[in-house]
Design a protein around this nucleic acid. Structure first.
Lengths: 334, 334
DNA sequence: GCCGGTATGCAAATCGTTTTGCATACCGTG
DNA sequence: CACGGTATGCAAAACGATTTGCATACCGGC
């Protein structure tokens, strides 16, 4: 048999649906005996209020989607997963405290039957230029908040990841020893790369370095990065430090250094952006940055909820990124 | 103002709500001109069908929660996150194809105002004995499916992780060289530990080994494991191989071995269970097991949906776990 | 006997869709 | 003209809850 409805429960208990509803919600007084009978019967019959119907009537408490701009479980995946999950964990907590649930949305294939997607808004993590995920939600009129500005969409509400400052922090740190600093970013056009590259250009100009930068396709992950960075280091033998914001690339760089017989940090100092497992598990451990992702997630949720409700949104700045210096850039051993 | 409803759109277009519905769903013929007018107007007014109402009527799927038995972002976190997220990614895909959305639920604090938690069912990952997360859902009559059997709850629907076979696979592999094999499991009473310990006992009996096993508190993570395993290895110097199903513990064991001057795999062969980033990033890379988590996730979703709909559930067995042999247990270098 | 107040519960409207059954108009054919 | 068929669309009944406004009963006090 299918699940019993409130009407069936009410009939069985010899009361009206109204009374059943009140018995559970407590919004009106119900005789304790009656209530007890209803509850017992509900237990026995396995009655549970249908959440969909409940929501339709009471309107409140919707759900928001968390979407990674990249496929969840794809090649470059494992390391992005850390970033995404750290955000997801915080976002889920914040969302719940705002009467909202957080839905994980798998990679969207265009044309897929996604109208079933019952969310009131979406958070997109680090969208790239012309990101199809954004189009998808726009077409449906679903409000979107980005984590990390969306390139080419200056008006899209976004939580600032402060990538310029982050880059500055890393570059200044790596530049301490006076070595020439190289940069490895991603081929995809995400705002964090764009800002980082700009900061790098400025950094080089200030110091009078010739820039040495390259871009790698994220999808190749650590493997491809190892190969590419090795070639890069061969071409630029005078580089003494490397800034690789993508942790998978930093891991690849580590391998490239080993392959070339370069010791880290003695011969090559290295730093990355996201302070996740990859940075901490690497050997030597990688210098990284605390991006305050918990705050980022919280702000994204709040902005999104405000947006959904049509209220004004107040984007307060996230706490300043903080350098987490580790062995991979330790100057004393260099 | 607030979002327009189908009625408002119908009025504006001078047709009935029925016609609007048909215009979008295509379930009945609508004059092309009329349809075009409706679509254009919808675009202009920003009309989007309310998914909640739609689902209520058409009986579509709701949403299910994915819950880790452990706090998301807690100490032992990063490595468990991998396991959880691999399941989450697959589950989200499967759920969507079943007209259901997957909600990530943060760690549940008892007594928190969770009435807002609007899910039709829940998947709990590797519940422990007396897991409060399970109680929470039971109290609310929310159907639950466990990934990995729930200790002490033989009747709870669960997807079998085939831990006995997994353990057997690892132990037989590690025992190949004839060395004595030690076992490190977790203090918490999860089914996978229980089965693994039992398999280990049988394994030792068969081979005539004296068992050498210890349990470590998961919450201590890699650090605590490193300390504990070092002591353990000191006490059992004749151990030539170590089975540490928790990847964080295996990583700790690796450090312990290094501290003791033992080479892996030459002096100590090592294997873990979950073939995640941690196993692959370790040096040497860790032998692990392919648990077919994608299948596991899919089955969990399907079982849960069946349960929600009151249908009979058919728990088909997951594909057999497969050993992924890596350097950490390579016999040729031992 | 009348009155106000409290206790208890129900009927009906509502949320925004989808879906079924019926209505009208128009067409060509015999 | 009568008739079947197609084109087009609407009214109303679901879906399963919540919420509002009323109804009845009973009580004590005057």
């Amino acid at each position: 048999m299918s699940k019993p409805t409130i009407v069936q429960l009410a009939q069985a208990a010899g009361v009206s649906p109204t009374t059943v509803s009140h018995a559970f919600s407590g919004r009106r007084y119900v005789d304790p005996d009656t209530k007890a009978r209803i509850v017992a019967l509900a237990q026995e019959m396995g009655y549970r209020a249908n959440p969909t119907a409940r929501r339709l009537r009471s309107g409140g408490g919707g759900s928001v989607a968390l979407v990674s701009s990249m496929p969840f479980a794809v090649a470059a995946g494992p390391s992005r997963l850390g970033f995404l999950m750290e955000i997801a964990a915080s976002a889920a907590v914040t969302a719940l405290s705002r009467n909202t649930t957080l839905c994980l949305v798998p990679p969207l294939e265009r044309g897929a039957q996604l109208d079933v997607l019952d969310v009131d808004g979406a958070i997109v993590v680090e969208p790239a230029l012309d990101d199809s995920v954004l189009d998808f939600f726009f077409e449906r009129g679903v409000p979107v908040v980005a984590i990390g500005r969306a390139p080419g969409r200056p008006n899209l509400p976004a939580v600032d990841l402060r990538s310029t400052e982050t880059a500055r922090l890393l570059l200044d740190h790596l530049g301490e020893a006076g070595q020439r600093v190289g940069l490895i970013t991603g081929l995809q056009r995400r705002n964090s790369y764009i800002e980082t590259e700009a900061a790098y250009a400025a950094f080089c100009a200030e110091r009078g370095f010739a820039p040495a930068a390259m871009r790698i396709d994220e999808r190749g992950g650590e493997e491809e990065a190892a190969v590419a960075v090795e070639a890069f280091l061969r071409q630029n033998p005078d580089i003494g430090a490397l800034c690789a914001p993508v942790d998978a690339f930093a891991a690849g760089a580590l391998r490239a250094a080993t392959a070339l017989g370069l010791a880290v940090p003695a011969d090559l100092r290295l730093a990355t952006r996201y302070d996740g497992m990859r940075a901490r598990l690497a050997s030597p451990q990688l210098t990284a940055v605390n991006l305050h992702l918990d705050q980022v997630a919280e702000q994204a949720i709040d902005m999104l909820i405000a947006l959904i409700e049509g209220k004004a949104l107040s984007p307060e700045p996230i706490a300043q990124p903080q350098l987490v210096a580790r062995a991979s850039s330790d100057r004393s051993s260099g």
